[in-house]
Computed example of a mutant assay.
Amino acid sequence: MTVFSATDAAFEGFRLTWEKPKTLLIWTGFFLVVNLLMPLALFGLGLNTQMAALEEVSRNPSPDPDVAIESMAALAPVYAILLPAGLVVLAMIAAAVFRLVLDPEDSRVHPVQFGAEEARLIVLALAYTLLLLVAVVAAVLVGGTIAGVAATAGAGPFVGILTSCALMAGLVYIAVRMSLGPVITFSEGRIAVFDSWAMTRGLVWPILGAYILAVIAVAVFYLLSLVLVVALGALVSGGDLQSVGRMMDPEMDSLETFFSPGRVLMMLFGALMSAVFHAVMSAPAAVIYREIRQRRAEF
């Protein structure tokens, strides 16, 4: 018996943004404000140079663990701002998407807001982060033990590859089984850390299929949109692709160089892409939860 349509769940975010242009405009405005305020905060606190260093590290990560740790330690003030702000932003937009999927007749026109629902999502995200760290450490310990035993027996490389694949599959399985936790927490007004495990029993493959379809769809949408924007930027700049590149990766030397007209346009494009991306990635879990709940109510 089909509990939900993986295709419908995967494309729900696109349907919402197409049928609710006013909501898409609100979400785009929210991300535009975030895109404008975050650089202002970093410049105001004198962390613009650290932000530039963070972008350089993300583009060219060092293979040396010691260097990587030193870089992260030096960038701690930037992380101290970006990580909490990111959690708040993600909780607010996820709650807005959940609200739209679960209560489409909501008279508030689905504003992005911060309240108890969003706060619970942040607490759940922190709990999930701790559980992820425990799972990763356990996987590394198990993998290392198996690899050591296999190396002693002379079958190290082959067993190591199989073990890595098995552990990765296990982590994906756990992630899928726990993936409805945020929408359960939002809908039921309590921090539901493990409730998703029971709700997703026997539905791992269709749920995983919905998530994979959503990722592929949003990736294609983003790439096509980016090609269009680059083409328009090249047309406006007379074919100067370097100027288009500077709009996408501006200098962090001063507010004037950062907030160039071209950069502001790119921020607007990024805000629109962020609104669509989060709608597409958050909606499937809400649809799946809604359909499972309705099916259970029928029986």
Rank of each mutant, 00 (worst) to 15 (best):
G189M: 09
L228T: 03
L203S: 07
Q113Y: 08
F98L: 03
A271Q: 01
L126I: 15
V101P: 01
R108M: 05
V89S: 10
F259P: 00
M199I: 00
G245P: 00
P182A: 10
A234R: 05
L16N: 07
F277Q: 03
S71T: 11
R108P: 02
V172A: 15
A135S: 13
T185F: 02
A234L: 14
E19H: 14
A52W: 04
R99H: 12
A41D: 11
N48G: 11
A91W: 03
R290H: 08
L75E: 07
A116I: 11
V134P: 04
A139W: 02
L131N: 04
T257G: 10
L235Y: 06
G233P: 03
S62C: 09
A297H: 09
M168Y: 09
G46P: 13
L131A: 15
L42C: 12
L208A: 15
E117M: 10
T49C: 05
V33W: 05
L223M: 14
T28R: 00
G170R: 08
V280N: 00
E117S: 14
E117P: 01
G209Q: 00
A153G: 15
K22A: 13
P182I: 05
Q113C: 04
L87H: 02
G46A: 12
G46C: 12
G270Q: 09
G238V: 03
Y128W: 10
Q294P: 00
A127Q: 05
P206G: 00
F221W: 06
T23F: 13
E117V: 07
L24H: 05
F259N: 01
E118Y: 02
P157Y: 07
V159I: 15
A73D: 11
F299W: 11
Y289R: 14
G156E: 09
Y211Q: 15
L213A: 15
F11M: 09
E105C: 02
I216F: 11
L130D: 02
G245Q: 07
A135G: 08
R263Y: 07
I292D: 06
L25E: 08
M252E: 04
V287D: 03
A52D: 12
L268T: 01
S187D: 14
A285L: 01
V230E: 12
